[in-house]
Nucleic acid binder design. Structure first.
Lengths: 194, 194
DNA sequence: TTCACAAAATGACCATGGTCAATAAATATT
DNA sequence: AATATTTATTGACCATGGTCATTTTGTGAA
């Protein structure tokens, strides 16, 4: 017979997440160890894996919380009236995503839902991003000959490309936002160019 | 006083690579174990890490060899005269890149050179890709209002986006090449749209 | 209250990538 | 040839993520 989830279990999960967040105030994401999380939370290692399928799942949870906070802020703003303000509103989020190589790789790995499985928290934030971008693009001064959804997906692709190149030694003379702008101008406003 | 690398060392490295390649004829990339590689090559585990900084480095080597073979073929072809033949010529490469989740993640992780370090073999193949694309785009029937290099980088960004979405359960009803085409039409030929 | 049983937690154990002090094998110097 | 010095190899050992049979705890039924 099925029984509901005990509140003890919810408390344990909360302890694990809180423990991770506490550790992350003084350590990089990449330096976080499962061992440390469970020690700090006062539970056994096996308990961790009863709550999260793997370490990535916890990191996903923490990182997606951060991304969602950015998206909350972004969604509160009025739609941008030009490309530069669109860029400006998204930059803090991109900044976070590239704050650490580990974080960027984690996000990349989970930006699409894994095949045939349930959509993960990071993939969900990508869905939200597409939502905001689609709306903003459709009401803003941007090209109308292409569906706003396609344009939004393109912006996402260019953002990822810009972030990836930002980690690259060769291309580091150009700041990320400038690179992104050089893609988005011809993508979103091809008619304004000679 | 410095001495040249011994041929014994080169032989060992070759044995390791050959061993990996042999194993990969009957196993997925993701299932390859360092233990198995050294056993098969008849050397100790420590020897492996004297030749490769980590497992990724070997995988990079093997995967980049494969990519370079594709690029050799691609570079032999005449420049495409339209978008569809451009796509067709690149599809086998993209197919290989998405043949396995492990391979795609590896490629993503190493597509940009790691900061301040030497450029890796996979990053080099991305450089080659940009080279071919830039040339093809500049001589083909594509927009001229944007530098061909920027357009080429955009194609790469869209290719990655298409591959990533191809792994995604939600979006899998649309084949990769069709998705990529829907991005590239407005990116490379914005004037042909209404 | 007691019992039965499902949910939760435990920690010894495993798998695998990676390290390093010690050793062996080349090569240069005498 | 004997010795010194640098390069290459070795394998015991470590770090860390992850598993699972066993035990503990909570809860509904009697």
């Amino acid at each position: 017979m099925k029984r509901p989830i005990q509140k003890r279990s919810l408390a344990t999960r909360a302890k694990l997440i809180a423990s991770a967040q506490k550790i992350l105030t003084s350590k990089d994401f990449g330096a976080l160890r499962v061992e440390e999380v469970v020690l700090n939370a006062g539970v056994a290692k096996g308990t961790f894996f009863a709550h999260f399928p793997d370490k990535d799942a916890l990191m996903e949870r923490v990182v997606s919380d951060e991304i969602n906070a950015h998206l909350d802020r972004i969604e509160k703003q009025p739609p941008p009236t030009n490309l530069d303000s669109l860029l400006r509103q998204f930059m803090p989020l991109l900044q976070f995503m590239t704050s650490e190589r580990y974080v960027f790789d984690l996000i990349l790995r989970h930006s699409g839902a894994a095949a045939k499985e349930e959509i993960g928290p990071i993939a969900q934030t990508f869905g939200r991003q597409i939502g905001v971008l689609t709306k903003w693009i459709s009401v803003g001064p941007f090209r109308k000959d292409v569906p706003a959804l396609i344009l939004a997906e393109g912006v996402q692709a260019f953002a990822i490309q810009s972030m990836a190149l930002d980690f690259c030694a060769i291309n580091s003379e150009m700041p990320m936002h400038a690179r992104l702008r050089s893609y988005l101008e011809p993508w979103l406003r091809p008619d304004t160019l000679s």
